[in-house]
């Protein structure tokens, strides 16, 4: 099913632009119309600098329709995102959005396991917030990063069974929302699980009863190897799993077929566009 909603072109005004360690930035933009329509998993195609010929696709981390803003988290690692990071409050940047097929959680599986790795964290935060607003879900958010997390971590006030002892670091915003979260890294950050986020997820899943596992659905966004591990985890436990994919992108509206990934369909292998056929795909159909 291709994303067919109307795509908006909106001038977004920078309200705030925070730098975090590891060249990470949180960009808050006033973009009321996109904020109104954004869903967890959708993204914007943002103008980074008028002298660059291409925009950059960035996942939406949060959208506050009432206040009319959206928030993006990105890492400055190329020409475009470096130029983007130099813009201050008041700058206006053109946005195309919200783009893409969002996550579609199944209500009959309320134990949502949200896995975010690095710059794949933003849509997981959005999904957690969406589940909180919608009600009826009990998500657990696990996030992994090999650079310092773009927020101050703190010991969680919410107990989660099946999580190894000492793995107590959490994202404060999640705690404030009453959503349990835990963090993982190979960097030895205090309170974080030492390992991959998918290893932590496996430990948690292993501790559930079969009946509890029957209520789990996995959602993941992050680097390719992490998504592959998430898909494997889902397969091992026969769980549904939705992954959000990334690929180099040109038009972002489905016109150029530049951002395709290999997907298995009923008619055989197909090249599907991340921008409008995704970015969210059923992990079981992705050819990693």
């Amino acid at each position: 099913m291709t994303h067919r909603d109307t795509l908006l072109v909106e001038e977004g005004e920078i309200l705030g632009h925070q730098a975090h360690p590891g060249e990470q930035f949180i960009l808050r933009l006033k973009a009321p119309r996109i904020a109104q329509r954004a869903r967890a998993g959708s993204f914007v195609h943002i103008e980074c600098h008028p002298l660059l010929p291409m925009r950059r696709p960035l996942s939406i981390m949060r959208a506050e329709p009432a206040a009319g803003w959206i928030e993006l988290l990105y890492r400055a690692f190329g020409a475009g995102t470096r130029l983007l990071s130099a813009h201050g409050a008041g700058t206006r940047l053109s946005l195309i959005g919200p783009i893409g097929r969002p996550f579609a959680p199944h209500p009959e599986r309320p134990r949502a396991l949200l896995l975010g790795g690095g710059v794949g964290i933003p849509p997981m935060i959005f999904l957690a917030e969406e589940m909180r607003r919608r009600g009826g879900y009990s998500p657990l958010v696990l996030m992994g990063s090999e650079v310092p997390f773009p927020f101050t971590t703190r010991p969680s006030q919410i107990l989660v069974s099946g999580i190894p002892e000492g793995t107590i670091a959490a994202m404060p915003l999640m705690d404030d929302w009453g959503i349990p979260s835990r963090l993982s890294s190979l960097q030895g950050y205090p309170g974080c699980f030492h390992g991959y986020v998918t290893d932590l997820a496996r430990r948690w899943l292993a501790a559930l009863t079969p009946a509890q596992r029957g209520e789990v659905e996995i959602f993941a966004c992050g680097p390719h190897p992490m998504l592959e591990a998430a898909a494997r985890l889902a397969r091992d436990y026969a769980l549904p799993c939705q992954v959000s994919l990334e690929e180099f992108m040109a038009c972002a509206v489905g016109g150029c077929a530049g951002c395709t990934v290999r997907i298995l369909t009923a008619d055989g292998p197909a090249m599907k566009r991340v921008c409008v056929d995704g970015p969210v795909f059923d992990a079981a159909t992705v050819v990693f």
Binding site: P53, A79, G80, F248, A250, G258, T260, A270, M271
Partner: peptide, 18 residues
Amino acid sequence: RLGNPPHRVTETPMGMLN
């Protein structure tokens, strides 16, 4: 035709390759 494997596009100075 399925087309080519990724990456299919990349930005270059004032242009792009596809």
